[in-house]
Amino acid sequence: MFLLSFFRVIKFSFQDIGRNIWLSVITITILILALFSVNMLLTVNMISNSAIEAVKEKIDVILYLKEDAEEDKAAALKIKISNLSQVKEVSYISKAEALKSFKLKHRDNPEILEALRELGKNPLTPSLVIKPQNADDYQALMDSLSGIDDDIIESRNFDDHKSMLEKINSITDKISEVGVFISFIFVLITLLLVYNSIRVAIYTHRREIKIMRLVGASNWFIRAPFLFSSIIYTLAGILSIIIIYYFFLSLLQPYLETFFIGYDINLLTYFKDNFVFIFGLQFIISLIVNVVASLFAVGKYSKV
C-alpha cells in the first residue's frame, strides 16, 4: 500500500512537471547556472592554488656573494643560515657552477653565449640558494635573512618575489569574492524560482488538491508530489551540470596546459578524483535549498 502510494506520488509529480513544462525548464536552467557558478569558483580556486604553489616552488631565495668571497667564509655563512628555523635547505653555488648552469640555461641562445665568450672571464658571482621550510612564512624568512650581516654578502634582492605572490593572492582573492557573490545570487534566485514553480504547480492543481482533501487523501499524499518534483529538479540540475561541466573542462584544459607549461595542473583529473565529494556536496546542498523552497510553497499554498 505504501509502495502503491509512492508510485502514484511519482506519477503525479511527473504530471506536475509536464503540465508546467516551461516553468520547470526555466527552474532547472537557473539551477544549472547556479551550479555552474559554484563550479567555476571551485575551478578558479583550484587553478590559483596550483599557480601559487608553482610560484612558491620556484622561488628559492638567493643570496649573491661577493665575487671574491672565500669558500670557507661562504661555508660558515651557509651553516649559519641552515640553522634558521624557516630554512629547509641551503646550497652553495660556486662561480664555476653558476657559469655551468648559466650556459646550460642559455644553450639555445648563441648570442648570449657569444657575448660570454667575448667577455673572456666568468662574470658570475657565487651564491647561496635557500629553500624555505614552508613557502607560507616567506616573510619571516626574509626578515631573518635581513638580520644576518656578513661582509661577503653582495646583495639580497628578493622583493619582487614577494610582490608577485601578493599579486597572485590579491587577484585570486578578488575572483573568489566575486565568485562567492555570484554563486550566492544564483542560489537565491534558485530558491525563489523553485518556490515559484511549486506555487504555480499547486495553483494549476488546485482543483485536484481540493478534491484530494475532501475525499480524505492524507496530507503526505497531497504534498509529496510537489516535494518530489523539487527532488527531480535537483537531480536534473546536477546531472546536467556534470555533463556540461565536464564538457567545459575538456575545452579549458588545453589552454591551461599551454598557460602552465611544465606544471601538473589537470582539472579533469581533479574533478574526477573528487567527483563524489564535489558533486555529492552540490547535490545535497541544492536538494536542501529546493526542498526548503518547496516546503515553504506547499505549506503556504496547498491549504486549498
Partner: peptide, 9 residues
C-alpha cells in the same frame, strides 16, 4: 481518483 489518492489498490 478519490480511491487512488487514498492508497486503494
Amino acid at each position: 481518483f478519490a480511491l487512488q489518492v487514498c492508497g486503494q489498490t
